[in-house]
Design a protein around this nucleic acid. Structure first.
Lengths: 236, 236
DNA sequence: ACTAGACAAATCGTACATTGTTTATAGCAA
DNA sequence: TTGCTATAAACAATGTACGATTTGTCTAGT
């Protein structure tokens, strides 16, 4: 598929122990992809029987997958009325990135105080790849950017917070997959990453945390602007 | 059952649309109660067949309920190995209340800027009931305290953040249900609530947010201390 | 035009078959 | 005898099939 990238973003360790049976898990992946890639439209009904037939299984694994998707926020589920693709609208995105603005600075603060030489080297390595790619391959940038932040959060003692971050990240990646980066945003991302590394090296936890808040805020706003632009284009 | 209280804490509106079938939902309630009340021990295996027989249903609704419980954090689920009662240990509690410390101040800040006269009256009414009860009925205090915070968060535009808060609150209530409040904690709760109302009236969003951070932090520490004490007693 | 009732579609619950995991036991080697 | 491995049987999760129940729609009748 769209495997233009040889780099695959992975969740922090100890996470994604979904607790789904094999079929349920793979169905989860497939349906999720269909939603993310837009093959399933917003608000479209997800009929269990259809999905089962289409994927060559019975209904139970489908029900399981839908439950998982509900947990991630990709699907809404109403008793006796089945499932629908959740419209990933601006409110939804705003809710999620606002939570990120609250949580990520705390994760970052901890990282700055605990970062090893190897951690910093890894950050710089990834940042090198990001600059090398220079947004030429958007998908690859997305993967690398996620990896960059994963390095910082993956060892955090608060697994819940890390998991929350990861889940939200996945949704945002799903939305922004179809957007291009504005020039302003590109510049901001690169300079903020570099500045962040400097803060980490210097051990300035507060500065790093404050910077990350701005970084996440900027990223969220960027996505929202794209969504607004697209909606305006549709309406007009 | 333990319905010593005539006041029942309710989740913020628009939340708890679990998306479970009727049987699944009631099973969810029942099993959840069993975990919270300690009738199901930590790490105990939850065998689907047993639960189905015990509650007089078939296995499908049980699976559904277990998935929901996993989402709330009460149960861990490993593929092909079934479900276990999640041990609500100190790490788990710490993770949760730390996230609260990050989120609740933001919710509070917004509330202070949006509070109506009726909202404030409601806060004062509940605070009155809290002081009237004066921790005599612990369960009732817990309900009232939850209601107090619900008034502040229930209208927040960020439904995700509000829902997150609610889920975490439920877990903490489950844990602290068996503990008594120390005198120091009682005093702190009452004075902090009063101070908070003052800040809301004065429109001091920052002070209110900072106070709430302290309030949540204190509540979390209080619970952790109780857990430590209990564990020490067990070990000794 | 509005209600009532029947029909279609899809969810929900039950029963059963299959697959995977754990445990106990028998066999073998040191 | 002791310790290890292989094997088989019990146990429980997972997957399949189907009937029961709910919901929404369409039509007939007042």
């Amino acid at each position: 598929m769209a495997e233009t990238s040889d780099f695959k973003a992975k969740p922090p360790e100890g996470i994604d122990a979904l607790g789904a049976s094999s079929e349920g898990a793979s169905l989860y992946q497939l349906i999720r992809e269909d939603i993310i890639e837009g093959r399933l439209a917003a608000n479209e009904r997800l009929v269990v029987t259809d999905l089962a037939r289409r994927h060559g299984t019975s209904t139970n694994p489908v029900r399981e997958a839908l439950q998982l998707l509900r947990g991630e926020g990709f699907v809404t589920l109403v008793p006796n009325r089945g499932a629908r693709v959740r419209p990933i609208d601006q409110d939804f995105v705003r809710d999620i990135y606002e939570i990120g603005v609250l949580i990520e600075p705390a994760l970052t603060r901890w990282f700055v105080n605990m970062a090893t030489v190897e951690d910093i080297a890894e950050l710089e390595r990834i940042q090198g790849l990001i600059e090398e790619n220079d947004f030429a391959d958007t998908l690859r940038h997305s993967e690398l950017d996620t990896a960059f932040h994963t390095v910082m959060y993956q060892k955090h003692y608060n697994r819940h917070a890390a998991e929350l971050w990861w889940k939200h990240r996945e949704v945002l990646r799903a939305v922004s997959r179809r957007f291009n980066f504005t020039l302003a945003r590109r510049a901001a991302i690169l300079s903020e990453h570099r500045e962040l590394i400097a803060h980490v090296k210097a051990g300035n936890a507060n500065d790093a945390a404050e910077l990350i808040a701005r970084h996440v805020e900027g990223s969220g706003r960027h996505i929202l602007e794209h969504m607004r632009a697209r909606n305006a284009a549709r309406a007009g």
